[in-house]
Design a protein around this nucleic acid. Sequence first.
DNA 1: GTCCGGCAGC
DNA 2: GCTGCCGGAC
Length: 261
Amino acid sequence: MTQPTANSIPSETNFNHSKTSLNSFAPRLLDWFAENGRHDLPWQQHQTDTPNPYVVWLSEVMLQQTQVTTVLPYFARFMDTFPTVQDLAAADWDVVAEHWAGLGYYARARNLHKGAKQLAEIIDETGDFPQTLADWEAISGVGPSTAGAIMAMGLHHYGVICDGNVKRVLTRWAAIDGDITKSATTKELWALAERLTPTENSGLFAQAMMDMGATLCMRSKPACRLCPLQEDCLAHAEGRETDYPVKAKNSPNRVSLAMHC
DNA sequence: GTCCGGCAGC
DNA sequence: GCTGCCGGAC
């Protein structure tokens, strides 16, 4: 053991974990995903060298609001009727709406349709899908998280995701107790997600993070016993997994409650 | 009944 | 920086 010196003080003071923990996060997660993750979802592109960005874009927009099991049949019908982004772009709005019916958030279906037209035009001009984060964020209905997902999983470029699943995993692992609806906490979580995302295989990492959040690190009754991050999960160490993520509660005022009587 | 979510619009 | 969106899970 070397003596602690000024130089051995953790250099990454912005994070709650040691460099060793931070650096081993991705390998542990990826090992778990290889052994126990889901590899059969129809939009997954990690087992091909020629990923299809359309598939990832479409599925990610649906998954913004809806769980995997609900999305599956909708995604299948969309791919059946609109096999390419050009098919979706050329479709009448009524047909798109029919296929979306039941998913809710119809404004998103409008953005999806508009986004398809934008993408078809870009492909017409450049011969390919957008290739940068900024160009994807310029597509209607695509924000920072969806753009990162498409970069990583749909193009096999470098990309970072920080959606609800990731935020739950990270707030627990690092015991981040800031209100996740606040922008300061959002920034903190994005910084941690970036720090943990490996430069190679960021798509596989994104896939694994989402799978972890959905199948192990669930909102209630997380399966910590099976978790590859359990050993240094700060929330688990205190038995406070379900205290995270912290979110300020809407305090409905008594007047509006009384109105319902 | 109450909470959840990623984005756009405000 | 904050809120509405819309159906599902709980």
